[in-house]
Amino acid sequence: MKKSITTIAFMTFVTVLFISVLAVINETSRARIIQNLQIDEAKSILYAFDILPKEIDETELNPAATTNDLPWNEQNVIETIREEIKTVTLPISEEHKKLLKDSFLAIEDSATIYIHHDNSGNVLAYGFPLKGKGLWGTISAFGAVSSNLEKMVGIDFTAQVETPGLGARITEVEFKYFFRNLSLEGFHEDSKRKPIVLVKEKEQSNIEDPTNSLQAITGATQTVSGVQKMLNTDLKFYLDLIKENEQQLKQAVSQRA
């Protein structure tokens, strides 16, 4: 009995000791980690809106480059977000919620729309957060569409736990480049076909030849299918929401200007 109590006491002491050490390390690094996450998120928003650092041509980047490889100055990121992006929160109606049963938005009461605008208060593009299921876990992304809602401006993946070298390649420029100018025509049609499809190989990007197709990644079928499903579910909702509240969104930007 005494031996058991000693063992329990020892285990408790050791556990508390190690947890205390970890708590101190965590607390001292927390501010920096949060700052890193915020900067990362801001870089992703800018990338999705096709706002790149000066003198950067996306087509000349290494195909395996990620958003973090872009030579952004942290201060520029913060200033660009402050000057060119505005957010508006819109309520999600019960009617919309019914259509969103497979989406992360099903449990939300409101959705945040990011607006990219110029100095005169004209809307250039709309953006929004996206979430879907990958092979190993949730994929979080940020998508942006043109102001007339007909084309996608871009996408960036803000969090994912997919297999490095396979599914995790969704974060690489080579994959994301096919979202630039991706046609959203299918979302505006009353048809049962999928608005966005995957193809094994695309000869041209959607910039040269706008289509509704994305190029899949070899060995990452489930991840890319998860991205496709995420887009086909969430984009429909966001496009409808923006269309319904277009005046309010435009006013929010013009008031600011």
């Binding site: 980690i33 890193n36 990620t66 973090n68 190993w136 994912q160 490095p164 974060t171």
Partner: peptide, 14 residues
């Protein structure tokens, strides 16, 4: 996560 976030992201769950 604090000092080399890019690598941390690339390694994911590993």
């Amino acid at each position: 996560k604090a000092y080399v976030p890019d690598i941390s992201k690339a390694l994911g769950p590993y």
